[in-house]
Amino acid sequence: MVVKAQSRPAEVLRPGHAGCPGCGHAMGMRMVLRALGNRAVVVVVPSCVAVISGPYPYAALNVPMFHSAFEIAAPTAAGISQALKIQGKDDIPVLAFAGDGGTFDIGLQSLSGAADRNEDFIYVCMDNEAYMNTGIQVSSATPRYAWTGTSPMGNTRRKKHIMEIMAAHRIPYAATACIGFADDLTAKVKKAKEMRGTRFLHLLSPCPTGWKMEQHLSPKAAVAAVETNIFPLYEIFGGSEYVINYRSKGLPVETYLSLQGRYRHLRPEDVKSIQAETDRNWEELKRRV
C-alpha cells in the first residue's frame, strides 16, 4: 500500500538519536511518538530512553521534554498533567517513558501512588529486561535464567508480573505491546490517547547489546517473543476485562531463546522449565479473558 505523503504521520523522534545500533528502544519510542503526535509533553527518566533523547544542546525528540529523576516518572507526569489542566491545556497529553528498572524496581512506589489516584497520563515502560544503561545488570524484569553482569550464572528469580500489579490498581487501560507488531502498538497508543486517567503500556523492546545478539535482530526477537507466548499481546480494561489481541503460532520457546547470547548457557532442562512456565502463563491469561 502506498501512503500518500500528506497523510503520513510526522516523525517525532528525529534521526541522530544516541542509541546503540539496532536499539529496540529507539524503534519503540519512534512508533509510540509517531502515534502520539507532537502536541504532547514527554517525560523521560534515567534509562536508555534518556540517552536516546540526546545530550545538551541536542534534542532528538520534537516535543517539550523533561528528564526527571529515576524513580519519579509517574508523579512527574502527574504534576505536569495537573498543571496543564490548571492552565486550560487539558487537550495536551502527557506521556512518560521509563525503563524496566525505573518501573518494576525503583519507580514502583511512585507509579503505584499515581495509578491509585488515577492521574491523567500515559506511562510507557520500555522493557529491555535489565539495567542496560548502566551496563547490563539484573532487574526484577529480567527473566529467569538470563545472563546479566550481576546474574553471571543466570537469573534465579522469575520476571515480576508488572501487568498484574497495574491491573490491581484498576486503572482504565493497561496493554502489552512490542516493536515486532507495529500496527498493534500504534493502535494501542492511539486508543490510550483517547482515554483519560492512568494508562499503562508494557512495551517489550529487545536490546542487542544486553541480550548479546546481532544488531539487526531486535524486531525478529520481538516477533519471536510474541509467537512463542513468552510475551503475549493483550489489553486489560479497568483492571479486570482482559482482551488477547493476537493468537500466536505457539512456537517452541527455543525459537526465541536461541537468538540471544544471554541464554547461551541454558541446559535442556532449563529450556523445558521455561517452556512449562510459558505454557502455564498462557493458559492463565486465556482463563482471564
Binding site: 517525560v43 519519579i72 508523579p75 512527574t76 502527574a78 504534576g79 490548571i86 492552565q87 511512585s110 499515581a114
Partner: peptide
C-alpha cells in the same frame, strides 16, 4: 482555589511540585 495532590510520599510530592512549577503554575 488550587488543587491538592495527595502523593504516596514526600519524594513524589516534591517531584509533582517541581514539575508543575516548571509547567508554570504556583506550587
Amino acid at each position: 482555589g488550587g488543587i491538592m495532590m495527595r502523593t504516596e510520599s514526600e519524594h513524589s510530592a516534591m517531584a509533582a511540585c517541581l514539575s508543575a512549577s516548571l509547567a508554570g503554575v504556583r506550587a
